[in-house]
Design a protein around this nucleic acid. Structure first.
Lengths: 156, 156
DNA sequence: GTATGTGCAAAACCTTTGCAGGTTA
DNA sequence: TAACCTGCAAAGGTTTTGCACATAC
């Protein structure tokens, strides 16, 4: 088990969360494919081979637990399944409305300084998270004339 | 009919959209309660009395048309129905995870300058919209000890 | 051993769709 | 009149839930 996963298992145990094979498996799946901001179903499909009896409902329940304990961020986009992001620090995303991919902007393109990312209160309201999302059409889809792809996550 | 609504009716007509009583009604409802970032159902309920035969499906369809022509922004939050916002310019929202209310931050609290709001391309990707959302607990819910309210939109 | 979690299936929920009839331009 | 839209009801898709059994601590 990767140290990162091990650490999260410990963290949850300390919080009183019962650590089952399934929950650990979802932590590992997140570790393995978290970068693509997977849906519950993506994670389920990723784990099916290794854990044939795992159910999708369990994946959803597990992700909710992880979310409650701050291990994942939930992302919603109109007409899209909920995505899960293991990076819980405020960081901007790009969402392509054609192919449906979501990615972390900062990895490919440094963005201008954005002071709102660090705000902890706002006019008396408690800020727990800050979501920034660029919505549009990605370079690839622009080139290909806006033709939606069959696969959500091209192998590239 | 308010001039703002009249203008939008004209705009849609020029785009070749057939303007029906229902579509105009939804424009008016948006004009009247748009500030609360209503769901399709909120708009439907708002209009039921005046248009008893209006159906929720029509409201959804109508909102999709408006969205296609850039008259509304769609907002999605985890575990929440889709919201509609008549302000289509990039502007930050606050979303209270306890009472579920959404509002425009700029109206109550000027936020620091945020250059990302004006970006039109990002590393070759075409940016059409920029969403910024503060997620947390509003002042009122903090005071009331995180007790979720029955009503989504208190009369205040 | 007891509390907690899982799997299954079904329910709940939100949103979209097909179609007959009605409306708009 | 021809194209388009509406209402209804049903389908579709995602997420949640109830319950008997299994597992973690």
């Amino acid at each position: 088990m990767r140290p990162d996963v091990e650490r999260k298992v410990q963290f949850l145990r300390e919080k009183g969360v019962v650590m089952t094979i399934q929950r650990t498996a979802v932590l590992e799946a997140l570790d393995e494919i978290g970068k693509v901001h997977p849906t519950a179903e993506d994670l389920y499909n990723h784990l099916r081979e290794r854990y044939p009896t795992l159910s999708l409902a369990t994946v959803y329940n597990t992700l909710e637990v992880f979310h409650r304990f701050g291990l994942v961020q939930e992302l919603s986009f109109p007409r899209q399944e909920r995505r899960y992001d293991t990076n819980t620090k405020p960081h901007p995303h790009f969402f392509c409305r054609v192919c449906g991919r979501v990615w972390d902007v900062a990895e490919t393109c440094p963005i201008p300084d954005c002071p709102v990312l660090d705000m902890e209160t706002m006019d008396g309201n408690k800020v727990e998270r800050v979501y920034i999302c660029f919505y549009g059409v990605c370079e690839e889809c622009l080139r290909e004339g806006f033709k939606p792809k069959g696969e959500r996550w091209p192998s590239s």
